[in-house]
Design a protein around this nucleic acid. Sequence first.
DNA 1: CTTGTATAAGATATCACAGATAACAGTACG
DNA 2: CGTACTGTTATCTGTGATATCTTATACAAG
Lengths: 227, 227
Amino acid sequence: MTAARTGAKIAPVEQTNLRESAYRSLHDAFTRGEFAPGDSLSLRSLAAQLGISMTPVREAVRRLVAEGALIDTRSRKLLVPPFNARRMADLKSARLAIEGLILDQAMERINPGRIAALKDILERPAAPDQTGPDLVRNYDFHFTLYRMSGSDVLLPMVEALWVQYGAYLNLIIHQEAASRVIEHEHHVAIIDALECGDRDAAMAALTDDIERSFALLGVTYTEAEQP
Amino acid sequence: MTAARTGAKIAPVEQTNLRESAYRSLHDAFTRGEFAPGDSLSLRSLAAQLGISMTPVREAVRRLVAEGALIDTRSRKLLVPPFNARRMADLKSARLAIEGLILDQAMERINPGRIAALKDILERPAAPDQTGPDLVRNYDFHFTLYRMSGSDVLLPMVEALWVQYGAYLNLIIHQEAASRVIEHEHHVAIIDALECGDRDAAMAALTDDIERSFALLGVTYTEAEQP
DNA sequence: CTTGTATAAGATATCACAGATAACAGTACG
DNA sequence: CGTACTGTTATCTGTGATATCTTATACAAG
């Protein structure tokens, strides 16, 4: 890496590619609950919507399939996974297990700057045209916390769990009833526990938050029917 | 779906494609420890070796990247992840966490036929040209157990963890010293516990088995350096 | 040690093909 | 005469191969 010889500051162009952009677009659509369970996707129409050719779309879709956000049937059709209570229960227990590990690691590396970063997200004003729950803020809060763990193994695992959950967000996105207020309390509780270094309190708050997410889907099951 | 009117039994034809075959080839190579950490892969040479074009190879590789078995650098180079103690520790704790959940579900659905299936694998003779530890048998034993959980969420998660671990198998594949005998005992212990319905004993045996796997890599760390 | 250039590799677009889906039409049977 | 089933066909979609473009890396010359 040769250092610049002049003092001129030139921002490096961001290194990206169409595959990654396509993935991000699709991923973001999932976290916003744009897709409904059972929806069928077509590579050609996705490519057309994104304004690129099929090839990078295929690769993005392959990644989504690997992450469980999409499934492809043996008849080669791409589907957003239909709602399934068993699946939801598994997603919940997996999140509880993995996020517990992540929390431990994040707490070992916590510091005032990071606490402040989390607080900033909570205090960030909601987008003015926001109708339902503030999904983006919720996502950002959790993932800045996750990233603090610094784990290249655990982070992709929760990412996959979230995007799988995202396939069901569509079901709750319009029932703005309960959702708006409650989440904030759990987030505040997590931050407080982080500041005190109280692992159990943090985990309890996190658990509540996860339970709440899934309760919105009406899933009180811990076990459920077989496919 | 109209039912056949005749009683004739006709086996459905296998539905496969090159992407899937390519993935399986690569995946199997990982579980056999064919790749060494730090190895660099080329799409073109992989395609040539597999006797197919780049396109399905790209998709297979994308899946492997999503699963963490390969990483791609910003310079677009594909690498087998270099050895990293922190990463190993994370893989281990993730396996312990997820496999605990899987074990619970598998035990709820256990029955004599399934116990027998597990025993069959253990009694299966090792391949005659086998030199190192019997990796394939080990893989089969664990995955038939995992599949008994019937979880579409948890199974892909362990699969990803195993293939990530596989990237390091190469490091131990030739040190046939300790490995051959020990694993068998843990597997027997798992089956015994399954038969008794003793969850704690099964989990203890499984934990021992996982610990052994990672001990072979000389990882006694539970936490380690940052990248 | 820098800088320019050649070569190799990945990324993207496009094309040809096979398989799936669904609308349609014809036919047998009530 | 109408209904249900079956074969047909048109269209759509994924798959795989290939040509072209872009970027990175190595090497050579200054």
